[in-house]
């Protein structure tokens, strides 16, 4: 009795969340003319893949797709490596400077990219890295968030394993690499997915540093298309949005357990 209307609200909510995505997907197969029709059509009247063939032909989206993927993969690899290293040191090793280091890293957890992008642009330009892959990648190779997540996870592992390995004569780095790190696979999966998604969707920095078209990432290309001379080319923009959104949705749906677990560990997206 009470149940059914709760489900009704929940389903209506789901429709409201999903509708823009469905609208996007259907729209990407329509012509510009049909997209302007009043009243609008739901299903494309004469489905066309013209938008996609233009996107992957003339519009050079394969290049942007490659750029986004390359940057996201390298950034993810960097975060997995460097954040787990420092996270382990902060959680499990006794050393002078541990507390100040932790405070320093946590203090910048909430520093917005807006605050740093101007001097960063000057720095990267003078290092000769403007409009280059290193310029796109280097500033994001490590993140305070990643350190925090890995530290939280390492802190939950028992010390006994390390002590036993020390007695066996394993070096400190060996204990980290061969014994402790393999135990953090769930945390690494979470960090990896969150970092990949974050990099894929990142906008401000690539917008600033990618100056020629061959270095654009997908969000930069889509944003500039949608505000530039293609602003009226609705079908193309819809198809572009599909190319940006769909890979992320697929990755998220495949690994969503890890994403929500990460939020549970740290409370931060």
């Amino acid at each position: 009795m009470r149940r059914w209307w709760i489900y009704l609200i929940a389903v209506l909510g789901l429709i409201a969340v999903a509708a823009p995505f469905v609208w996007m997907l259907l729209g990407s197969f329509k012509t510009d003319g049909e997209l302007l029709r009043v009243p609008p059509t739901w299903l494309p009247e004469a489905p066309t893949n013209g938008n996609y063939s233009e996107l992957f032909g003339k519009a050079n989206f394969p290049r942007y797709f490659f750029n986004s993927t390359l940057v996201a993969l390298v950034v993810t690899a960097g975060n997995l490596t460097f954040c787990s290293m420092l996270g382990y040191a902060l959680a499990k090793l006794n050393f002078k400077g541990r507390t100040p280091l932790f405070v320093l890293v946590m203090g910048t957890l909430m520093v917005p990219g807006m605050v740093t992008f101007v001097p960063l642009f000057v720095l990267v330009t003078n290092a000769g890295l403007a409009n280059s892959y290193p310029g796109l990648i280097l500033p994001f190779l490590v993140s305070p968030f990643g350190v925090f997540l890995m530290r939280q996870f390492f802190a939950g592992l028992p010390d006994d394993l390390m002590d036993a390995a020390r007695v066996d004569g394993t070096s400190e780095l060996g204990i980290f690499g061969r014994i402790m790190l393999p135990l953090t696979r769930p945390a690494l999966a979470t960090l990896g997915i969150l970092t990949f998604l974050g990099s894929w969707n990142n906008f401000l920095w690539p917008l600033v540093i990618a100056q020629t078209e061959d270095k654009y990432t997908l969000p930069v290309a889509l944003a500039l298309y949608s505000t530039g001379q293609n602003a009226q080319h609705y079908g193309l923009l819809m198809a572009g949005a599909v190319v940006v959104v769909v890979p992320v949705l697929v990755i998220f749906l495949a690994f969503q357990r890890h994403v929500t677990k990460g939020i549970a560990i740290t409370g931060i997206k």
Binding site: M85, N94, P144, S171, E172
Partner: peptide
Amino acid sequence: RQTAAAWILALPFAVLFLAFTAGPVLGS
């Protein structure tokens, strides 16, 4: 040994972090 290992583990992060986060915060 732990101190040495800790700083080896912290080094790459520290360099990148100083150059691309802490530095620009002060630079800004």
